[in-house]
């Protein structure tokens, strides 16, 4: 059994030597930056998609179909494939993109980050935007229909009712599932390593191939857990709090929270991305 300890838990010999720990930490810093930037952009893009999908009226049906088609496509293909398609445009595919697009867009190096970093941000955003759009939609649809009717009967337009009545209620309900999606997104940043970004998993692999030892990867796992476990606990806490709130207003008709609890899109948002 000693070889297991030696291979996975040799912290003094593998991680805390030769600046390896610094390499892992700076890799993790890339992971964090990828997660936060893609997370914020994905949240925004997802909300836009969800609102487009809910637009009322027949003339806007094509917009709804486009939004639904987009969501279906990006929920249905692997993130890895999306990343490879994006990066292919300029890294491997010779100058296909380079001829058409200016270099600053085909091979972006904005804010001192590498092109693979930005390809990663783009791929994560357009994919997780589709996941998050579905969470928003479930949230909007979980608000009881009587809310829209009450707002409309007071003279509000559809847009006013959405903005002041429906979305504020929906957002509170979707925070836990969106956080779940964020945890999944954070783990999926490791896929960006295939494009050449040295995030924490790539940093661990580099150490592994230098030292023939897996402890660097274990260190990466530990860093992930330091962030993801508290986030998961926070999700549990928020769900429990929401259920207490719903329980208190139980008798009245404007609770509607049970629908949330039983809605798969709202409970296990990150499930299909693993």
């Amino acid at each position: 059994m000693n070889f297991i300890v030696d291979y996975y838990f040799d912290f003094t010999g593998t991680v805390f030597t030769d600046g390896n720990f610094d390499a892992i930490l700076s890799g993790f810093w890339i992971t964090i930056k990828l997660s936060i930037i893609s997370g914020i952009l994905g949240l925004t893009w997802g909300l836009i998609l969800a609102v487009l999908r809910q637009l009322p009226g027949r003339p806007l049906a094509p917009v709804r179909w486009l939004a639904i088609g987009y969501i279906d496509v990006f929920r249905g293909i692997p993130l890895l494939l999306v990343l490879l398609l994006i990066s292919g445009i300029s890294v491997f595919g010779a100058p296909i993109g380079g001829e058409v697009l200016p270099k600053s867009i085909a091979s972006p190096t904005w804010f001192g980050q590498t092109s693979p970093f930005w390809y990663g941000v783009f791929g994560l955003t357009i994919t997780y935007g589709a996941y998050m759009a579905e969470v928003y939609r479930a949230g909007i649809e979980s608000v009881p229909g009587g809310q829209m009717e009450a707002a409309r009967s007071l003279g509000m337009s559809h847009g006013q009712a959405m903005r002041f009545v429906i979305v504020p209620q929906a957002v509170r309900r979707v925070i836990p599932p969106l956080l779940n999606d964020f945890i999944a997104l954070m783990k999926d940043t490791s896929l960006v390593s295939v494009l050449g970004a040295v995030e924490v998993v790539q940093a661990g692999r580099d150490i592994q191939s230098e030292t023939y030892n897996g402890t660097g990867l274990v260190m990466g796992a530990i860093l992930f857990l330091i962030v993801t476990i508290p986030l998961a606990r926070l999700v549990d806490y928020l769900i429990a709090r929401e259920q207490r709130r719903v329980g208190r207003s139980g008798g009245s008709d404007d609770g509607g929270g049970e629908e949330v609890a039983s809605d798969p899109a709202l409970v296990g948002g990150g499930g299909m991305t693993a």
């Binding site: 009587g146 809310q147 009717e149 009450a150 009967s153 504020p168 207003s249 008709d253 404007d254």
Partner: peptide, 11 residues
């Protein structure tokens, strides 16, 4: 209009 299920804005 006043509804059977009140429909107050819970937030």
């Amino acid at each position: 209009m006043v509804f059977q299920s009140f429909n107050l804005f819970p937030h």
